[in-house]
Amino acid sequence: MLFQAARPHLSPARIKKLLLCHPALARILVIIALFLLWEGAARWWVDPIFLSPPSQVLTSLDTVFETRGVPAALRVTFWELAVAFAMSVVIGLVVGLAVGLSKFSYRSTMPIILLLYGTPQVTILPLFILYFGIGPASKIAFGVSHGVFPIIVTTVAGVQNIKPILMTAARSMGASHWQLFRWVIFPHMIPSFFAGMRLGMTGVLLGVLLAELYVSTAGIGYFTQMFTQNFDPTKLLGLISVLAAMAIMLNEIVRRAEVHFARWRMD
């Protein structure tokens, strides 16, 4: 009796109701449909030197990792991303605080920062290679150049958004500079700082991967180029999927951190 209730009969009306109540289920179905479309297209319509079906990509993922140099290249790229992100956060935080905490420095340096933020860095990518060489240093520098500005801008915004009354109150109760920073400015800065870290992570990913694709001797860009030139879409797609998974993971970590640290404002 109980078991029968637990296994309802799947009639079309029932499925429709189930889908209407759970949009996430429908979303998964859409994703599955897209993959089936890809599988079908790759199997029957498209030339196999351009596209391989997802099933084949998945089953040959291990051959990608077995290709000589790929694990090392993934490590190099991951290392570049980590260093570039850490540097962006530190520089962005320091510059953002220096700019945001005084009205004078805000007014004098903010336009310069916005001007630099607005210029398209891709045009000077060859310069980064010229100055920092073709190794990891140029990728890190280019990643920092993409990641640091959103962090500066959001840190400044976070510092500026503190209600003056809180500052005045703390000061009139005799808070020192350090206490003011630790107990008033810092907690208010946290949510926008993490929003900035999320934007900065997007920027760092873009910058490092762009520089990798442009010129690379050991990183992931070298292998994407090799697989493209060998018309080996199975390995190329495998490598891109691994990188996309890495990017999603990094983005998700920062996003979770943002949600976690912005929580105190909710109550």
Partner: peptide, 28 residues
């Protein structure tokens, strides 16, 4: 309902650095 189904999907794809697909596009 459509918003609930598709918006997270599109936002999710948007968070992947699409420049990664450039080698693939050059191939195509």
């Amino acid at each position: 309902y459509m918003i609930k189904v598709f918006e997270p999907l599109l936002a999710g794809i948007y968070s992947v650095p699409i420049i990664l697909f450039l080698p693939l596009y050059v191939l195509f």
